[in-house]
Computed example of a mutant assay.
Amino acid sequence: MEESDVYTEDGTVDIHKNPANKKTTGNWKACRFILVNVCCERFAYYGMSKNLVDYLKSRLNQGNATAANNVTNWFGTCYITPLIGAFLADAYLGRYWTIATFVFIYVFGMTLLTLSASVPGLKPGNCNSDTCHPSSDQTAVFFVALYMIALGIGGIEPCVSSFGADQFDENDEAEKLKKSSFFNWFYFSANVGAFVAAIVISWIQMNIGWGWGFGVPTVAMVIAVMFFFSGSRYYRLRRPQGNPLTRIFQVIVAALRKMSVEVPEDESQLFEIADDASNITGSRKLEHTDNLK
């Protein structure tokens, strides 16, 4: 068999850093673990965050405006931290190892959050039927847990969908078609997890207690981690490509210097080198397109 029939042509490697074998890695055999991971992680995220304002009001004795502001700040942090995860994945760690590192921060934060709502001494004390009066230490533990979760999310959110896409070789027409189907299943899995969490966890928090209300999402996150690592031998890994900021500035400088250069008719002359492969480790040369015109 030709090498192109055995190994991927997009530069991906397996968990042992060997060229990725098409038969034993990637495709749906790898993606099933990623989809379960996504479903459970979204269940955990939406389960613990759905009623945070109510928790801050009833257990941390915060006013409605203060509670809403704190939750908004936390949500904002969850959208900022992916910039950190994306940079680390592209420049240094790669998507697999970035996810593998940050999921432990995520799980630790979820565990600490559950303990802060259920363990005597950590959970808010001096409670009556409507509200509690926590100490400053109890409040601090809660917010440390909350922002550890935000940091954990920062390493997962920018990487997991792209990591799923890495399981399909763009140079293989059959696998290229499957990639579109993967994204359909990816968002379906994420929405299923969010939908179930909105129904089940909200009921648990309101009717059973906050310890269970945070504990069940924590268990879901542990399951997500277990499934993610269970598929390690099937994954295709794209190697980190160096600092992306350097390349961005290189593109800007090159574009400014070559504004008046006439585009050649021969598309092969548009590439930076004559070789088939890109000179960026773990990357490939892009095909020429007129679509951006």
Rank of each mutant, 00 (worst) to 15 (best):
E3M: 11
D5W: 05
V6P: 00
D10Y: 14
G11T: 08
H16V: 10
K17D: 15
N27C: 06
K29C: 01
I34F: 06
I34V: 15
I34D: 05
C39D: 00
Y45T: 08
K50L: 15
N51S: 09
V53F: 01
V53Q: 00
Y55V: 08
Y55Q: 05
Y55P: 05
N64E: 14
T66G: 06
A67G: 13
A68K: 04
N69T: 15
N73M: 15
W74N: 07
T81H: 06
A89C: 04
A91W: 12
G94E: 03
Y96F: 15
T101Q: 00
M110S: 12
T111Q: 04
L113R: 12
L113G: 13
T114D: 05
S116G: 12
V119M: 14
P120T: 05
G121Q: 08
L122D: 03
N126A: 12
D130F: 06
D130I: 05
D130P: 00
T131Y: 13
S135V: 07
Q138A: 01
A140S: 15
F142Y: 15
F142C: 09
F143A: 01
V144Y: 12
V144H: 08
L146R: 08
Y147E: 06
I149M: 07
I149K: 01
I153Q: 11
I156K: 09
E157C: 04
E157I: 06
E157G: 02
P158G: 02
C159H: 02
F163Q: 04
G164A: 04
G164T: 03
F168M: 07
F168Y: 14
D169H: 00
E170F: 04
N171M: 02
N171T: 02
E175R: 03
K176E: 07
L177Y: 03
S180R: 06
N184S: 14
F186N: 14
F188Y: 12
S189T: 07
A190W: 08
A190E: 13
N191T: 04
A194G: 10
A197T: 00
I199G: 01
I199M: 09
W203P: 03
I204F: 00
Q205G: 10
Q205M: 13
N207E: 14
G209I: 08
G213A: 10
F214H: 08
G215L: 07
V216T: 10
P217F: 01
T218Q: 06
A220G: 11
M221C: 13
M221I: 11
V222N: 02
A224E: 12
F227L: 05
F228T: 03
G231N: 07
S232T: 13
Y235I: 03
R236N: 08
R236M: 11
R238M: 07
P240M: 09
N243G: 04
T246Y: 09
I248D: 05
F249Y: 08
I252Y: 10
R257K: 14
M259D: 08
V263I: 11
L270W: 05
I273D: 11
S278K: 09
S278P: 12
N279M: 09
T281A: 11
S283L: 06
H288P: 08
H288Y: 15
D290L: 10
N291M: 09
L292T: 14
L292R: 10
K293R: 15
